[in-house]
Simulated scan of single mutants.
Amino acid sequence: MSLVEKLLILALAAQALLTVSILVWMGMERVPRVRNGEIAMAEIAVDRDAYPLKARLLSNNFDNQFQLPVLFYVGVMLALWSGGAGWVEVILSGLFVVLRYVHAGVHVTTNHVFRRFGAYFAGLVVLGLLWVWLVLRIVLAPSI
Protein backbone atom coordinates (compact mmCIF):
# COMPACT_ATOMS: atom_id res chain seq x y z
CA MET A 1 0.00 0.00 0.00
CA SER A 2 1.37 3.40 -0.96
CA LEU A 3 1.92 6.35 1.37
CA VAL A 4 -0.86 8.26 -0.41
CA GLU A 5 -3.31 5.42 0.17
CA LYS A 6 -2.32 5.20 3.83
CA LEU A 7 -2.81 8.95 4.28
CA LEU A 8 -6.25 8.78 2.66
CA ILE A 9 -7.22 5.98 5.03
CA LEU A 10 -5.93 8.08 7.94
CA ALA A 11 -8.15 10.96 6.76
CA LEU A 12 -11.13 8.58 6.77
CA ALA A 13 -10.18 7.39 10.25
CA ALA A 14 -9.80 10.96 11.54
CA GLN A 15 -13.28 11.86 10.28
CA ALA A 16 -14.72 8.68 11.80
CA LEU A 17 -12.96 9.50 15.09
CA LEU A 18 -14.60 12.92 15.13
CA THR A 19 -18.03 11.34 14.64
CA VAL A 20 -17.52 8.75 17.37
CA SER A 21 -16.07 11.36 19.74
CA ILE A 22 -19.12 13.57 19.32
CA LEU A 23 -21.35 10.54 19.90
CA VAL A 24 -19.55 9.62 23.14
CA TRP A 25 -19.57 13.21 24.37
CA MET A 26 -23.28 13.48 23.54
CA GLY A 27 -23.96 10.28 25.49
CA MET A 28 -22.05 11.66 28.47
CA GLU A 29 -24.29 14.74 28.38
CA ARG A 30 -27.57 12.87 27.86
CA VAL A 31 -27.50 9.53 29.68
CA PRO A 32 -26.80 10.79 33.21
CA ARG A 33 -29.65 13.28 32.97
CA VAL A 34 -32.12 10.56 32.05
CA ARG A 35 -30.64 8.05 34.51
CA ASN A 36 -30.89 10.43 37.48
CA GLY A 37 -34.43 11.50 36.58
CA GLU A 38 -33.55 15.08 35.61
CA ILE A 39 -35.21 14.38 32.24
CA ALA A 40 -38.12 11.95 31.87
CA MET A 41 -38.11 9.44 29.02
CA ALA A 42 -41.46 10.79 27.82
CA GLU A 43 -39.86 14.22 27.37
CA ILE A 44 -37.25 12.87 24.93
CA ALA A 45 -39.23 10.17 23.16
CA VAL A 46 -40.09 12.45 20.22
CA ASP A 47 -37.71 15.41 20.24
CA ARG A 48 -34.62 16.82 21.95
CA ASP A 49 -36.05 19.98 23.43
CA ALA A 50 -35.92 18.67 27.01
CA TYR A 51 -32.14 18.33 26.88
CA PRO A 52 -29.96 21.26 27.94
CA LEU A 53 -28.30 23.39 25.28
CA LYS A 54 -24.94 21.55 25.32
CA ALA A 55 -26.61 18.19 24.69
CA ARG A 56 -28.69 19.65 21.85
CA LEU A 57 -25.60 21.22 20.26
CA LEU A 58 -23.79 17.90 20.43
CA SER A 59 -26.80 16.11 18.98
CA ASN A 60 -27.09 18.59 16.13
CA ASN A 61 -23.38 18.27 15.43
CA PHE A 62 -23.58 14.48 15.48
CA ASP A 63 -26.40 14.66 12.90
CA ASN A 64 -24.21 17.00 10.85
CA GLN A 65 -21.49 14.33 10.68
CA PHE A 66 -23.81 12.40 8.36
CA GLN A 67 -24.21 15.17 5.81
CA LEU A 68 -21.09 16.41 3.97
CA PRO A 69 -18.87 13.70 5.48
CA VAL A 70 -20.90 11.01 3.71
CA LEU A 71 -19.86 12.52 0.37
CA PHE A 72 -16.29 12.69 1.70
CA TYR A 73 -16.28 8.99 2.62
CA VAL A 74 -17.61 8.03 -0.81
CA GLY A 75 -15.12 10.31 -2.57
CA VAL A 76 -12.11 8.91 -0.72
CA MET A 77 -13.29 5.35 -1.27
CA LEU A 78 -13.69 6.15 -4.98
CA ALA A 79 -10.18 7.59 -5.05
CA LEU A 80 -8.81 4.44 -3.42
CA TRP A 81 -10.85 2.09 -5.61
CA SER A 82 -10.00 3.80 -8.88
CA GLY A 83 -6.27 3.67 -8.27
CA GLY A 84 -3.90 6.45 -9.11
CA ALA A 85 -4.83 8.63 -6.13
CA GLY A 86 -2.24 11.28 -5.53
CA TRP A 87 -1.27 14.18 -3.36
CA VAL A 88 -4.16 16.34 -4.56
CA GLU A 89 -6.60 13.88 -2.98
CA VAL A 90 -4.50 13.71 0.20
CA ILE A 91 -4.30 17.49 0.58
CA LEU A 92 -7.99 18.07 -0.15
CA SER A 93 -9.02 15.21 2.14
CA GLY A 94 -6.81 16.43 4.98
CA LEU A 95 -8.07 19.98 4.60
CA PHE A 96 -11.69 18.79 4.59
CA VAL A 97 -11.17 16.85 7.82
CA VAL A 98 -9.44 19.79 9.50
CA LEU A 99 -12.37 22.01 8.53
CA ARG A 100 -14.81 19.44 9.93
CA TYR A 101 -12.94 19.54 13.26
CA VAL A 102 -13.06 23.36 13.21
CA HIS A 103 -16.78 23.28 12.39
CA ALA A 104 -17.47 20.78 15.19
CA GLY A 105 -15.36 22.78 17.63
CA VAL A 106 -17.30 25.96 16.96
CA HIS A 107 -20.62 24.13 16.89
CA VAL A 108 -20.28 22.51 20.32
CA THR A 109 -18.61 25.44 22.11
CA THR A 110 -19.47 29.03 21.18
CA ASN A 111 -21.83 28.04 18.35
CA HIS A 112 -20.95 31.33 16.69
CA VAL A 113 -23.13 30.93 13.61
CA PHE A 114 -21.00 32.98 11.18
CA ARG A 115 -17.79 31.16 12.16
CA ARG A 116 -19.57 27.83 12.05
CA PHE A 117 -21.00 28.62 8.62
CA GLY A 118 -17.58 29.78 7.41
CA ALA A 119 -16.02 26.45 8.39
CA TYR A 120 -18.95 24.54 6.90
CA PHE A 121 -18.84 26.46 3.63
CA ALA A 122 -15.05 26.15 3.35
CA GLY A 123 -15.44 22.39 3.85
CA LEU A 124 -18.13 22.32 1.18
CA VAL A 125 -15.82 24.10 -1.26
CA VAL A 126 -12.94 21.72 -0.51
CA LEU A 127 -15.26 18.74 -0.88
CA GLY A 128 -16.54 20.12 -4.18
CA LEU A 129 -12.96 20.51 -5.42
CA LEU A 130 -12.18 16.94 -4.36
CA TRP A 131 -15.14 15.63 -6.33
CA VAL A 132 -14.38 17.72 -9.42
CA TRP A 133 -10.77 16.51 -9.30
CA LEU A 134 -11.85 12.88 -8.86
CA VAL A 135 -14.33 12.96 -11.71
CA LEU A 136 -11.88 14.63 -14.08
CA ARG A 137 -9.02 12.35 -13.10
CA ILE A 138 -11.07 9.19 -13.48
CA VAL A 139 -13.03 10.14 -16.60
CA LEU A 140 -10.04 11.60 -18.42
CA ALA A 141 -7.68 8.76 -17.45
CA PRO A 142 -6.41 6.83 -20.46
CA SER A 143 -8.05 3.43 -20.85
CA ILE A 144 -6.05 0.29 -21.36
Results as ranks from 00 to 15, higher is better:
Leu8Met: 12
Leu8Thr: 08
Ile9Val: 15
Leu10Val: 13
Ala11Pro: 07
Leu12Ala: 12
Leu12Phe: 05
Ala13Val: 15
Ala14Gln: 13
Gln15Cys: 15
Ala16Phe: 13
Leu17Lys: 00
Leu18Ile: 10
Val20Ile: 15
Val20Gly: 08
Val20Thr: 08
Val20Lys: 03
Ile22His: 09
Ile22Tyr: 08
Leu23Tyr: 12
Trp25Tyr: 11
Met26Asn: 14
Met26Arg: 13
Met28Asp: 02
Met28Gly: 06
Glu29Cys: 10
Arg30Asn: 06
Val31Thr: 11
Arg33Glu: 09
Arg33Gln: 14
Val34Arg: 13
Gly37Ala: 01
Glu38Leu: 10
Ala40Asn: 10
Ala40Gly: 10
Ala40Gln: 15
Met41Asn: 12
Ile44Leu: 11
Ile44Asp: 06
Ala45Asn: 14
Arg48Ala: 14
Pro52Val: 11
Pro52Ala: 12
Leu53Arg: 14
Lys54Pro: 15
Ala55Met: 12
Ala55Lys: 08
Leu57Phe: 09
Leu58Pro: 10
Ser59Met: 09
Ser59His: 07
Asn60Trp: 03
Asn61Arg: 05
Asp63Phe: 09
Asp63Lys: 07
Asn64Trp: 04
Gln65Tyr: 02
Phe66Met: 11
Phe66Tyr: 07
Phe66Asp: 01
Leu68Gly: 04
Leu68His: 06
Leu68Asn: 05
Leu68Tyr: 02
Pro69Cys: 05
Pro69Ala: 05
Leu71Phe: 11
Phe72Tyr: 11
Gly75Ala: 12
Gly75Tyr: 01
Val76Ala: 05
Leu78Glu: 01
Ala79Met: 06
Leu80Arg: 08
Trp81Pro: 01
Trp81Gly: 08
Gly83Val: 05
Gly84Lys: 07
Val90Ser: 02
Val90Thr: 01
Leu92Ile: 07
Ser93Ala: 15
Ser93Gly: 08
Gly94Ala: 06
Val97Asp: 00
Val97Gly: 03
Val98Cys: 08
Leu99Thr: 01
Leu99Trp: 00
Arg100Pro: 04
Arg100Asn: 05
Val102His: 04
Gly105Pro: 13
His107Pro: 14
Thr109Cys: 01
Asn111Phe: 09
His112Gly: 10
Val113Ser: 14
Phe114Arg: 13
Phe114Ile: 14
Phe114Val: 15
Arg115Val: 08
Arg115Glu: 09
Arg116Met: 01
Phe117Gly: 05
Phe117Asp: 07
Gly118Pro: 04
Ala119Gln: 02
Ala122Ser: 13
Gly123Arg: 05
Gly123Trp: 04
Leu124Lys: 00
Val125Asn: 03
Leu127Cys: 00
Leu127Pro: 00
Gly128Arg: 00
Gly128Gln: 08
Leu129Ala: 14
Leu130Ser: 06
Trp131Pro: 00
Val132Glu: 03
